[in-house]
Amino acid sequence: MNLYDRFRHPVERSPGFDPIPVKPRLVAVKQQAVAEGKRLTGQADPARRKRLPPGQERVTSFPVLDLGSRPLIDRNSWSITWGGLCAAPGKLDWQEFNNIGPVDKLCDIHCVTGWSRFDNRWRGILMTALLDRARPAPQATHAIFKGHDGFGTALTLTDLKQPDVLLATDWEGRPLTREHGGPVRLVVPHLYFWKSAKWVKQIWFTEGDPGGYWENRGYHHRGDPWKEERYG
């Protein structure tokens, strides 16, 4: 059993959390893309970073991608908890979370399936504000984000400290919808969008990279679009 699986079980026993089954056919499609190296161009050149990463196509819509699970979460009952290797484990309800002070950010997003959407207007809480509250331990290198849909992904603290990383509550001036991960999703613009976990409910700080649901099924552990880190 890997670190991700060992972490998964206590989270899934948290109050109010019921894992939602995925659709195996859709998982198989994504794993087939890994096997085929789909969308890889071999043209990655981080030194000549352009706005549109290699292998991507610009879209104006906002595609909805999931595995058939779209948890319905009432904002009034939503909360976020954090723990693991940090000095101050904690929990915030919806009101307490928003009292931190929302900010607005404009950014592009890039999905590993090949679409990119420019100039997205997000509103939410800076990830750095939550990190300041949690105070990760010196040995902590990563944080696992878990959602109400049962999925998780791990990111480095270095990536999470970037100034445009948000726990987003709004998109394009409106509350984040259920299909796009509302009431709260992570937004990490400089990495492929599967790293921007939907329906976030829990953060766990770790030493080392335990991976996550897709990373343990062939996706890259970091996911830099300009380096074509789709699979790894």
Rank of each mutant, 00 (worst) to 15 (best):
A28V: 05
V29K: 04
V29L: 07
V29T: 05
K30L: 12
K30S: 11
Q32C: 05
Q32A: 14
A33D: 13
A33H: 14
A35K: 05
G37R: 06
K38T: 09
T41I: 00
Q43P: 00
Q43C: 02
A47G: 02
R48H: 15
R49G: 00
R49C: 01
R51I: 06
R51E: 12
R51F: 09
E57V: 10
V59Y: 14
F62V: 10
L67D: 08
L67Y: 13
G68R: 05
S69Q: 10
P71Q: 01
R75E: 10
N76A: 13
N76M: 04
S77D: 13
W78L: 00
S79M: 06
S79E: 11
T81N: 10
W82T: 04
G84R: 08
L85G: 08
L85Q: 14
A87T: 04
A87W: 03
W94P: 02
W94N: 07
F97C: 03
N99M: 01
P102A: 07
P102W: 05
P102D: 11
I109E: 15
H110Q: 06
C111V: 14
V112A: 12
R117N: 02
R117C: 04
F118K: 02
F118M: 09
D119S: 15
R121V: 09
L130Y: 12
L130G: 12
L131N: 13
A134D: 08
P136Q: 13
P138Y: 07
P138F: 01
P138Q: 07
Q139P: 14
A143Q: 02
I144K: 00
F145C: 06
K146L: 15
K146Y: 15
G147C: 13
G150M: 09
T153V: 15
T153S: 13
A154H: 07
T158E: 15
T158G: 07
Q162A: 12
